[in-house]
């Protein structure tokens, strides 16, 4: 093979100042990030944050409008034909003939590669056998997702881009998918994963890049991200919508060491000094203001809370 041996220091993906626009809408706004080889790296962000656009630029579908993108040391747009055999791609949706059977489609993608994985174990592993002779268009969303994942790994790539891999999967299939991604990493495959599921990023990722409005707003391991902003949060959910001045009033009660953020009309999140004392103060405030708590919980910070603190809004589904 003519590929030069990759130096250990060379990143799997290196994005520097990427800008992508659709018309006058900016999808990616000066994004810079790095993906180290042999890791699972999650790109986390709400819908419309620019995740898919970024991935599709790395896959060479789109040309970087500004900034540079290197994937396995190659320019994904100019050197696409060199890059494609070395990467695996799982599209967010679709990716087969409407009338094709799952196993047939997988065999076809395998036939385009030089040293594909054996088909049967992969079919069994991802439960694609159950698809039988059903044409692609009549497979369930979860089955289509699993086929998409199988197609991404069958060519034995060095680097896999998986776009929202478990969207629409049942819990068992999600677990299978996670285990598969972990095995890929153990065998030296680099995985770049986009998701808006926090538990997915927490479970799998060595490194999380949080993106919002096309910009990188935080990077770190799930542990670093959840610990760097105070270790706990208090969540207050009430039965009737808050009066409009409630968050400000609660903030005054708690003082500047805690931070109150409304989540919606009936719930809010308190971070910073989130401990038993604060919990008691919140409880007292509720009583004083005739607010009836439905739940008041003190818990560990999750990535979701971190995201909320960073962006001021939830990830949504």
């Amino acid at each position: 093979m003519s590929t030069p041996p990759a130096s250990a220091a060379e990143a799997a993906v290196e994005i520097d100042g990427l800008v992508m626009r659709y018309g006058d809408k900016v999808a990616v706004d000066g994004l810079s990030l790095r993906v180290e080889r042999g890791t699972i790296t999650a790109v986390l962000g709400p819908n419309g944050a620019g995740k898919t656009t970024t991935l599709e630029t790395c896959e060479g579908f789109r040309k970087a409008q500004a900034g540079t993108v290197r994937v396995l040391g190659l320019d994904p747009h100019r050197q696409r034909q060199q890059l494609l055999p070395r990467i695996g791609v799982m599209l967010q949706a679709g990716g087969a003939w409407s009338g094709v059977r799952a196993e047939e489609m997988l065999r076809h993608i395998a036939a385009l590669h030089a040293h594909p994985l054996p088909i049967e174990p992969l079919v069994e592993r991802l439960g694609l056998g159950e698809c039988g002779r059903t044409p692609y268009r009549r497979l369930s969303g979860g089955q289509q997702q699993r086929l998409g994942l199988a197609m991404a790994v069958v060519g034995r790539p060095e680097l896999c881009f998986v776009d929202e891999p478990t969207a629409g999967m049942d819990p068992a299939a999600r677990r299978t998918t996670w285990e598969l991604l972990e095995e890929l990493r153990a065998d030296g495959v680099t995985i770049v994963l986009t998701t808006h599921y926090m538990d997915e990023a927490e479970r799998l990722a060595d490194l999380v890049h949080v993106i919002d409005h096309g910009r990188l707003i935080a990077s770190g391991s799930p542990f670093e991200l959840t610990r760097s902003r105070g270790s706990a949060t208090i969540r207050l959910v009430v039965t009737d919508p808050f009066p409009p001045e409630a968050p400000a009033s609660l903030q005054r009660t708690l003082g500047p060491t805690a931070e109150v953020r409304p989540l919606n009309e009936q719930s809010l999140l308190i971070s910073g000094d989130a401990d038993a004392t604060t919990l008691a103060k919140v409880s007292a405030w509720c009583e004083e203001h005739n607010v009836l708590p439905e739940s008041l919980t003190l818990g560990q910070n999750t990535l979701e809370d971190v995201f909320l603190q960073l962006t001021g809004r939830g990830l949504g589904a």
Binding site: H113, V153, R156, L184, D187
Partner: peptide, 25 residues
């Protein structure tokens, strides 16, 4: 599947094989 199943071995099949597979499908 055992350890090493997914060890990367990337590469494209020769063009004539790809074209044949595509036409057959």
């Amino acid at each position: 599947m055992s350890q090493g199943t997914f060890t990367p071995a990337p590469g494209a099949a020769p063009l004539h094989r790809q074209v044949r597979a595509q036409a057959a499908m």
